[in-house]
Simulated scan of single mutants.
Amino acid sequence: MAEATEKEKIKRKTVAEMKKLGVYKKEYGRVIEIYAELVAQYDKLNRDFEDGGYKFQVITAQGGAKKAPIVATLETLRKDILTYSDRLCLNPKSIETVTTDNKKGKSKLAGVLGGHK
Rank of each mutant, 00 (worst) to 15 (best):
residue 1 M to A: 15
residue 2 A to P: 09
residue 2 A to T: 14
residue 2 A to Y: 07
residue 2 A to F: 09
residue 3 E to M: 05
residue 3 E to T: 14
residue 4 A to E: 14
residue 5 T to I: 15
residue 6 E to C: 03
residue 7 K to D: 04
residue 7 K to F: 00
residue 7 K to P: 02
residue 8 E to C: 03
residue 8 E to D: 10
residue 8 E to Y: 10
residue 8 E to R: 15
residue 9 K to N: 15
residue 12 R to C: 03
residue 13 K to L: 01
residue 15 V to F: 07
residue 15 V to S: 04
residue 16 A to F: 02
residue 17 E to L: 06
residue 18 M to E: 15
residue 19 K to M: 12
residue 20 K to H: 15
residue 20 K to I: 11
residue 23 V to D: 04
residue 26 K to C: 05
residue 30 R to S: 15
residue 32 I to H: 04
residue 33 E to L: 02
residue 34 I to K: 13
residue 37 E to D: 11
residue 39 V to K: 07
residue 42 Y to F: 09
residue 44 K to G: 02
residue 45 L to Q: 06
residue 45 L to P: 00
residue 46 N to G: 01
residue 46 N to Q: 10
residue 47 R to W: 00
residue 49 F to P: 02
residue 50 E to L: 09
residue 51 D to E: 15
residue 52 G to P: 02
residue 52 G to M: 05
residue 52 G to K: 10
residue 52 G to D: 13
residue 55 K to N: 13
residue 57 Q to F: 10
residue 58 V to C: 03
residue 65 A to V: 08
residue 65 A to T: 13
residue 66 K to S: 01
residue 66 K to F: 00
residue 67 K to T: 15
residue 67 K to N: 14
residue 67 K to R: 13
residue 69 P to N: 05
residue 70 I to L: 13
residue 70 I to K: 12
residue 70 I to P: 10
residue 71 V to D: 12
residue 71 V to L: 15
residue 72 A to P: 01
residue 73 T to F: 01
residue 74 L to M: 06
residue 76 T to I: 07
residue 76 T to K: 07
residue 78 R to W: 00
residue 78 R to I: 02
residue 80 D to M: 04
residue 80 D to P: 01
residue 81 I to D: 02
residue 83 T to Q: 05
residue 86 D to I: 05
residue 87 R to K: 15
residue 87 R to N: 09
residue 88 L to I: 11
residue 88 L to H: 06
residue 89 C to K: 03
residue 91 N to G: 07
residue 92 P to L: 02
residue 93 K to P: 01
residue 94 S to W: 01
residue 95 I to P: 03
residue 96 E to N: 08
residue 96 E to M: 08
residue 96 E to H: 05
residue 98 V to I: 13
residue 99 T to V: 09
residue 99 T to P: 00
residue 100 T to P: 00
residue 101 D to V: 08
residue 102 N to E: 08
residue 105 G to E: 08
residue 105 G to V: 04
residue 107 S to M: 02
residue 108 K to C: 03
residue 108 K to A: 11
residue 109 L to A: 11
residue 109 L to H: 03
residue 110 A to P: 02
residue 112 V to A: 15
residue 116 H to R: 13
residue 117 K to V: 12
residue 117 K to W: 06
residue 117 K to N: 11
